[in-house]
């Protein structure tokens, strides 16, 4: 039921995720952060089975840190995406993690990038993407309103339109969304 959205703009990536944690028909809490900060310039939006998500994304986060500590070099967004894909593909035929991800990052060299990753290990770079049931509404909304190289203000407006669509059309209530932005200066939370 998680809704995660990510889009690239002019020198930044904007990620949004709903803040509801629900199990079966019960809402457990409404202030959950589903956008993990992998390092200073990388955001990982997480959807899926909460146990698998916690286990898997922390494993990725710690490995990104470990690589940085060992080599003194921080990986590119693409490198992290491929590492994550590899882990998902390896576990797919043993003990699959039910985890769907959107990796957004800003890189000195490659600029802002968004990668789509699902539990099967499908990896694809996209200008914008969404996962979960919300994708049915949001992909269409973004197809209509997304423009390349938007300013942060424009991107926020588009993101609001997309989230409003979920609020109006989606059967399940998702009152609050967390929006984070990553650019060359690092990560900041834009709104709740």
């Amino acid at each position: 039921m998680d809704s995660i959205i990510a889009l690239t703009g002019d020198g930044f990536v904007m990620c949004a995720a709903d803040m509801t944690n629900a199990r079966s028909i019960v809402v457990m809490k409404e202030d959950m952060d589903k956008i993990m900060e992998l390092d200073r310039h990388r955001l990982l939006c997480m959807a899926g089975e909460p146990g698998d998500v916690a286990q898997f994304t922390e494993y990725v986060q710690k490995n990104v840190h470990l690589y940085q500590l060992r080599t003194g070099v921080s990986q590119s967004t693409r490198a992290i995406a491929n590492f994550t894909r590899n882990e998902l593909a390896k576990s797919l035929r043993k003990n699959p993690y039910s985890v769907n991800l959107l990796l957004g990052g800003y890189d000195q060299h490659d600029g802002p990038e968004v990668f789509y990753l699902d539990y099967l290990g499908t990896l694809h770079k996209m200008p914008f993407s969404a996962q979960g049931y919300c994708a049915y509404f949001i992909l269409a909304t973004l197809d209509r309103y997304y423009k390349p190289n938007m300013s942060e203000q424009e991107a926020l407006e588009v993101m609001r339109k997309a989230i409003d669509e979920v609020r109006i059309r989606f059967l399940i209530k998702q009152p609050d969304f967390l929006i984070k932005v990553v650019d060359k200066n690092g990560i900041r939370t834009v709104s709740k």
């Binding site: 894909r85 998902l88 593909a89 099967l120 290990g121 499908t122 990896l123």
Partner: peptide
Amino acid sequence: GLMTDITS
């Protein structure tokens, strides 16, 4: 076929 296996 399946994209994940294509990449692998």
